[in-house]
C-alpha cells in the first residue's frame, strides 16, 4: 500500500523525465554501438570501417536507421502472424526495462532540483535484472518459432537452452556478490564498493559473470542462436526491415545493460578512486559509470572479433561442467572467507 501512496504528481513527473532520459541514453548508446562494432571490427582487421556517412562515418547509425525503416516489411506466408509481429517488440521491451534499477549516479542537482539518478531502488534490484535477462529469451523463441523456418527454429531452440544453462552460473556468481554485500539492492552493492571494488575479492566470480553475460547477450563466441555461418542468421532469418532492426537493436541494448551491470557489480559502479561522484553537480557519477560500461562494451567487441564461435556441445559442456561447478566453488570460498575473515 505504501507503494501506491508514494505516487504524487511531482514524483511522477520526476520519474517520467528520468525514464525518458534513460531511454534516450540507452537507445543512443545502442545506436552508436552498431557504429562502434563496425569501426572496432575494422580496426581489429586492419580496415577503416564505415567512413562515408558524415565525418569518420559518424552518421552511419542514422543511415542504417533510414535503411531499416524504408525496407520492405515482409511477413512469411506460413508464419504465425501475431507472434511473428509480437516477438521483436517483446524482445526490445524487455531489453529496455532493465535500465530502471541501475544506479546511474547519486543525485543530480539541475535547475535547483535534486534528481535521484536511479529510477527505482527496489531492494531486489539485481534479481530484477536477472529476471529480465531470463525473460529476454522469449522474444528470440517466439520469433524463431513463429517464422516457420527450420533455421529460425534451430536458433530459437539453441537460444533457449543456452539461456537456461548460463543463467544458473550467472545467478550463482551473483550470489557470491550478494553474500559480500548482504543486499540485493544494486545501490547498496555499489555504495559498498566505495573503498575497494568487488573484483578484488571476486576475480573468479568476475570471469564467470563475464562469460555468462556474453552467453546471455548472444554475443560471440556464444552467438549460437544466430550464427550466420550455419543458421544463416538463426532466429531472425525471416525478419526484415525494422522488425529485424528491433532484434539487432535489442541485442545492443542488452549488451549495454550487461556491461553496466558488470561495472556495478564488480567495478564499483559510479565510484572511482580519486573522483567524487558528486562533482559537477552529480554529473560525475554517470560519467564514471558510462566510461566503465563503454570500456566493457569495447571488451565485448574485442572478444567477439578475437575468439571463434564455440560448437554447440562445447557450449553446453562449458556451461554445465565447468562454469556451474566453478561458480559453486566460488560461492563456497566466498562463504568461507566471510566466515574466517569477516566482511
Amino acid at each position: 500500500m505504501s507503494l501506491i501512496l508514494l505516487f504524487s504528481l511531482g514524483f511522477i513527473i520526476e520519474k517520467a523525465v528520468l525514464i525518458i532520459a534513460l531511454f534516450a541514453l540507452t537507445l543512443g548508446v545502442a545506436a552508436y554501438s552498431t557504429y562502434g562494432e563496425r569501426k572496432i571490427a575494422a580496426f581489429f582487421q586492419d580496415r577503416l570501417g564505415p567512413s562515408n556517412a558524415g565525418p569518420w562515418g559518424l552518421l552511419q547509425p542514422l543511415a542504417d536507421g533510414v535503411k531499416m525503416f524504408t525496407k520492405e516489411d515482409f511477413v512469411p506466408n506460413q508464419s504465425e502472424r501475431w507472434l511473428y509481429i509480437l516477438a521483436p517488440g517483446a524482445f526490445i521491451f524487455v531489453a529496455l526495462m532493465a535500465s530502471a534499477v541501475i544506479p546511474w549516479g547519486t543525485t543530480l542537482t539541475l535547475g535547483g532540483l535534486n534528481w535521484n539518478l536511479q529510477v527505482t531502488d527496489v531492494n531486489i534490484g539485481i534479481l530484477y535484472v536477472v529476471g529480465l535477462a531470463s525473460l529476454g529469451v522469449y522474444g528470440i523463441m517466439l520469433g524463431g518459432w513463429a517464422s516457420n523456418n527450420k533455421f529460425s527454429l534451430y536458433g530459437a531452440i539453441r537460444a533457449s537452452s543456452q539461456m537456461i544453462s548460463y543463467e544458473l552460473a550467472m545467478g550463482l556468481s551473483i550470489i557470491a556478490i550478494v553474500m559480500l554485500s548482504g543486499s540485493l539492492s544494486l545501490k547498496t552493492i555499489v555504495d559498498q564498493q566505495a573503498g575497494m571494488w568487488n573484483v578484488v575479492y571476486q576475480p573468479l566470480g568476475f570471469i564467470l559473470f563475464l562469460t555468462c553475460a556474453l552467453a546471455e547477450c548472444n554475443r560471440a563466441p556464444f552467438d549460437m542462436a544466430e550464427c550466420e555461418t550455419e543458421l544463416i542468421g538463426g532466429y531472425h532469418t525471416e525478419y526484415s526491415a525494422m522488425k529485424l532492426g528491433f532484434f539487432l537493436f535489442a541485442e545492443y541494448i542488452n549488451m549495454f545493460i550487461s556491461c553496466t551491470v558488470i561495472s556495478c557489480l564488480y567495478f564499483g559502479g559510479y565510484h572511482f578512486p580519486g573522483l567524487d561522484p558528486n562533482w559537477l553537480g552529480g554529473l560525475m557519477g554517470p560519467i564514471i559509470l558510462l566510461s566503465k560500461s563503454f570500456f566493457f562494451i569495447f571488451v565485448f567487441m574485442w572478444i567477439r572479433w578475437t575468439l571463434p564461435r564455440f560448437r554447440y556441445d562445447q557450449l553446453m559442456h562449458l556451461g554445465w561442467k565447468s562454469l556451474i561447478p566453478l561458480a559453486i566453488v566460488n560461492m563456497m570460498l566466498t562463504g568461507a572467507g566471510i566466515l574466517f575473515f569477516g566482511k
Binding site: 581489429f44 586492419d46 577503416l48 578475437t306
Partner: peptide
C-alpha cells in the same frame, strides 16, 4: 590462450590500415 589471442588482435587494433 584467450589472453594471447586478445593480445594479437589488440596489436592489430593499433596498426595502420591498408585500405
Amino acid at each position: 590462450a584467450i589472453a594471447k589471442g586478445m593480445w594479437t588482435t589488440l596489436k592489430h587494433f593499433f596498426r595502420k590500415s591498408n585500405t
